[in-house]
């Protein structure tokens, strides 16, 4: 850690909901948990988010992101594509894939237009635009972060933080959670964010996995949810 100031600012930018990639439309099943009355209070929300971190964000997304980041640093387009393919294949609910690929495509588009990608990044972004590779958000995030000088662990932390604040924001807009309560949950989740990112950041692509069956079922039921304010 201890990154360059510009890289630090880039990490902040990438983890901020101000980044226009549609993150505020994704709830990754959370809307359905609330639709079905499965979240009673802040404690249950915190537990649920900790489970997302341990079973999905860590072992799947962090592994994808970190490996995309390293492959990008090595100019290894094939490496990026392989990670992208694997992450997409293990993301079960259709809407999770949809949220992830739409945001990934927008992130690539944004940085491609700004001329802010290196050769491997440009090649990856073009393939995403042409529909030749899924372009999952964590993979695009890893590639873009690399170009901005953000190292794998910092990129993983920025992404996990963005994921958690995104879902907390969704919970706040859908349920009845106070702003101080939401901040307390975020604070309580910090050690989990750190532990999960540190644990998975150096894993090989082949280690990529996820196990979140109830979240996946919620994600699938959401397709026919009676209330849908979110894409996923």
């Amino acid at each position: 850690m201890g990154s360059e100031p510009a890289a630090f600012l880039s990490a902040l930018r990438l983890s901020d909901s101000f980044l226009p990639v549609g993150g505020y439309t994704a709830s990754y099943g959370l809307e359905q948990y609330l639709n079905e009355g499965r979240l009673e209070d802040g404690e249950e929300l915190r537990e649920l988010l900790a489970a997302y971190l341990r079973r999905l964000v860590g072992p799947a997304e962090t592994v994808a992101l970190a490996n995309a980041n390293r492959a990008s640093a090595a100019g290894d387009l094939e490496g990026i594509l392989a990670v992208d393919e694997r992450l997409h294949a293990l993301t079960m609910p259709r809407e999770f894939r949809e949220s992830a690929t739409k945001a990934g495509a927008k992130l690539c588009e944004l940085f491609l237009e700004d001329g802010e990608l290196d050769a491997a990044g440009v090649a990856f972004a073009r393939r995403v635009a042409d529909g030749e590779t899924p372009g999952g958000y964590p993979v695009a995030f890893g590639v873009v972060a690399r170009r901005q000088g953000v190292e794998p662990l910092e990129a993983a932390l920025a992404h996990a933080h963005g994921f958690v604040t995104g879902l907390l924001g969704a919970a706040q807009r859908l349920g009845r959670f106070g702003h101080t309560e939401i901040q307390a949950i975020l604070e309580a989740l910090q050690p989990t964010i750190v532990a999960v990112c540190e644990r998975h950041v150096d894993a090989e692509p082949a280690a990529m996995a996820s196990f979140a069956p109830l979240a996946e079922i919620m994600g699938m039921r959401h397709e026919r949810g009676e209330r849908r304010l979110f894409v996923s």
């Binding site: 505020y24 439309t25 807009r173 304010l229 979110f230």
Partner: peptide, 10 residues
């Protein structure tokens, strides 16, 4: 198109 309960953001 879903806008995550934020129509103005959308």
């Amino acid at each position: 198109v879903e806008t995550g309960a934020c129509p103005h953001t959308g």
